[in-house]
Amino acid sequence: MRQILLITDGCSNVGVSPVVAAAHAQSEGITVNVVGVLDQEEAVDYGAPEIHEIARAGGGLSRMVAMRELARTVQMMTRKTVMHTIQSAVHKELQQVFGATSLEELSPDKRGEVVRVIDELGETSPLEVALLIDTSASMKPKMKAVEEAIHDLMLSLQARQGKSRISVFRFPGSRHGAECAQVLEWTDSAAGLPSLFAKITMQGTTPTGPALMHVIDFYRQDKYGRDNREETDGMRSGNVG
């Protein structure tokens, strides 16, 4: 299972539309969730329509939240998406095995069986989450909360029985005009998650679409690498900049 979790606070303003990019992700079996971080006390969510659109195209969830809600939201969304991904897969099976189009058509007894399988898979299926963090200037006061949320997500994923790992990307990438850069390679441990954004200079543009494309590409190459080399840790350093 593959997810991209986009954390942003505004509208994209450079490059390909993020909605198109999210639709690309969806077509490759990657679910895109989006969290919009609101400014403190300020309920101006001018970015909201785009955020919801991106998630819809990416087959995922979207929420606008205050900073203190961030960790909980990220954790909850990831979990829900896992369950949803499995449910969609199971629904296909349902049709073949029981001729039912939805869970509600099954008798409570059969439903119990199916949900047991869903729960089991939700707990044990391997999961990869690429976090894509908006580090444009307006996000600066929110980075502490973002780091905390990443840490918290890792804590929840570690408790799963299935193999789970995260990687972190930020956009824009650097002063040299890169759209996106990896700041944390695949990891399955929360222990010693470095202070990710401490040294980063936060700056202007918000190339959400190109950054999404970059992460999809990363996933694609990662898969390609693993398929070819048959290595369990088919990761690449992915430093673009």
Binding site: R72, E123, D152, S156, Q158, A159, R160, Q161
Partner: peptide, 24 residues
């Protein structure tokens, strides 16, 4: 027991207080 905790509330959560995992 042995799986991840399905649902929790932050202030009651061991992980939130940096006191351990979210394994059941």
């Amino acid at each position: 027991i042995g799986k991840s905790v399905r649902q929790f509330t932050e202030i009651y959560d061991r992980g939130y207080w940096s006191a351990g995992s979210r394994s059941a």
